[in-house]
Design a protein around this nucleic acid. Structure first.
Lengths: 194, 194
DNA sequence: GATACTTTACTAACTGGTTAGTTATATGTT
DNA sequence: AACATATAACTAACCAGTTAGTAAAGTATC
């Protein structure tokens, strides 16, 4: 029953559930401790404070995303599909990101910005290679794709809360998203390309 | 200095700023009272509790949106443009909606659902009239349009925090959004319409 | 038109419960 | 013993909501 690493993990898991559900301001440290099955003080031994705990968890899961979701500028509908699948199977992380963008004053950590820039650069290359049409700037495309792929998550005010039926047909939804991304990125490659 | 209506309005304004900035859990009633320049108790005379105050404000501003933003199924790029303009000039309301979808347990009020259904029905009619192509279900289209039109607001985790430059060219952004919506809604009307 | 009474708008101080974070102490491990 | 892991008890600050009371404005009565 004495296992530092395991306790730390249980805290992280419990905190993930708590923060995802209630955000930073709404999260209760006592509740995290109870869920983790440990004493509250353990949380303050492993982490500085509530905010740090939140950031640690967000960072950890974001890293996981970057590993699980390779960006494929030559197959953007496929990328959107994978983002959609990920968002549907990881609603907690999507909520965590939503809380973060509302509650955390600081801009996104430098790492995220860098990764974003890499994608934009790759997208520009794909455009120059004729794989993606040049109708839109690469930065616009990336945000548009992410917006479409995550529009049906609970954190979107215009998402499933207004259109509850849509999430009951995830397959149709997935196909529609892929098709929409295709229209935006490959819609008129031939016409405009040269 | 004794003016019930004016005081109530000041409370609503102060609460809008507070809730928009900190959400429900993060909002402080004392701070609202201070901003409104009134005693905290006045808030509890005019409103039941913090949650009710939040709901009242959200409702009030949503009503305003429905009046200011007529839905035009025959001109969806134009509608997206207007939503984009509205979102850019009313970031507080967008944040309020984001907080609501994260913090409020209850589903969206019946009114919002009804308005949504009306739009979906109108969209279906526009499809049958050949004004909008039938590639996508009307419910999908509506959510996709809203997602695109509001993707560059602060509350979107994939929005401006990752792509800060984009919001410096709002005109280009607006045009791109309109163009993207056009591609999705009118992209291949001729081909599929027959 | 002055006086007593009622209602409305407002305030200061308080209450009871909550909460992030700490300290002191105990227990298992090597 | 020495160290790492864990717990219980505690504290100081905070915070939503309440209470009890004051002052202004209106209304009735003479």
């Amino acid at each position: 029953m004495r296992n530092a690493e395991a306790t730390r993990e249980r805290i992280l898991d419990a905190a993930m559930a708590e923060f995802s559900a209630y955000g930073i301001a709404g999260a209760r440290v006592d509740r995290i401790a109870k869920t983790a099955g440990c004493n509250k003080n353990m949380i303050y031994i492993y982490f500085d404070n509530k905010e740090t705990l939140f950031s640690t968890i967000l960072q950890k899961h974001l890293t996981r995303v970057y590993e699980e979701l390779p960006f494929t500028p030559d197959d953007l509908p496929g990328y959107a599909t994978r983002v959609f699948n990920f968002a549907m199977t990881n609603p907690d992380l999507i909520r965590l990101m939503a809380w973060s963008s509302l509650e955390q004053k600081t801009e996104s950590p430098a790492e995220r910005g860098t990764i974003h820039d890499l994608k934009v650069a790759a997208l520009l290359q794909a455009q120059n290679a004729g794989q993606v049409n040049k109708t839109f700037a690469p930065g616009f495309l990336l945000t548009a794709i992410m917006a479409l792929a995550t529009a049906w998550t609970a954190s979107n005010p215009f998402g499933p809360s207004l259109d509850p039926d849509s999430t009951k047909n995830p397959d149709e939804l997935r196909n529609s998203i892929a098709e929409a991304v295709k229209l935006i990125t490959q819609g008129d490659t031939e016409k405009h390309e040269q």
